[in-house]
Amino acid sequence: MRRNQWKIAVLFLLPYIVIFSVFRFVPSVGGLLVSFFKWSLGGNPKFIGVDNYVNLAQDSSFYVAIKNTLAFFVLTVPVLVVASLLLAMLLNQKLAGRKVMRTISIIPYVLIPSIVGIMWNWIYDNNFGLLNYYIKKLGGGPVFWLTNERFALVAVSIVVVWTYIGYDMILFLAGLQGIPKETYEAAEVDGASRMQVFWHITLPLLKPVTMMVSTLTLVNVVQLFDQIYVMTNGGPGTSTLTMVQYMYTSAFTNYELGYGSAIEVVILLLLMVLITVQNRIGNRERKTA
């Protein structure tokens, strides 16, 4: 009984589709349009073709921003994927109190990201911060985590890892629990070692989850903004200036909305490229394995 129900469907869909179109779809497409204009706040927008992109290509700050975004990606995504997988495998064991541990591990993800930034500012504080106190106790000198160009990006990366590790762990845990017990029992009968089981059963079966976790984490890291704004605001110098930071500054501090839109377009392109590359690498590994 296949009936066409489009009339009732329209009624059900209408509120969502209207809001979705106005506040999400149109802006997503409109960004490309705005990027072809010299669009300052107050002044009349003027069509300038691809000039914004030409200027971007010659803007050294923009290259710094791309470099920093990629640096955040390299410093956080692999650590997050590996550490959260290991943690998930631990919590997949029969350990007493593992529910409590699961609950605790997601707390960082639930907290307001900008406030997480302030919490860590205090921990990283040059003079009275907890971290420097313990480093000193172990015999090291104080590290100027957020005010030294060499450390700021690492310091923020640690916070990113702290925030997302529990979230990624839950995704892996769900994946691990989806692997049927019989598979492991069969391997045991065949006399497989722990390492063999991990490399030849767990990892291949977990592949879709791993790809998904990497993709989600990648999206989360590329769009990183709140913590950076609160912790370093892109500094010191330009050492933590990311593409999103630069977009924000261009559009809402310098009021170059067209220029900012061009950066947004590049952010989206970079995101798509990274996702594609990551998935390619993942799929190639499966073939060679």
Binding site: V34, V244, I267
Partner: peptide, 19 residues
């Protein structure tokens, strides 16, 4: 609709602001 999961707010916030 679902493909928008991959388009973060950061990538359309300027047109949203204008609208």
């Amino acid at each position: 609709i679902i493909v928008m999961l991959l388009v973060p707010m950061q990538a359309y916030v300027i047109p949203l602001y204008l609208m």
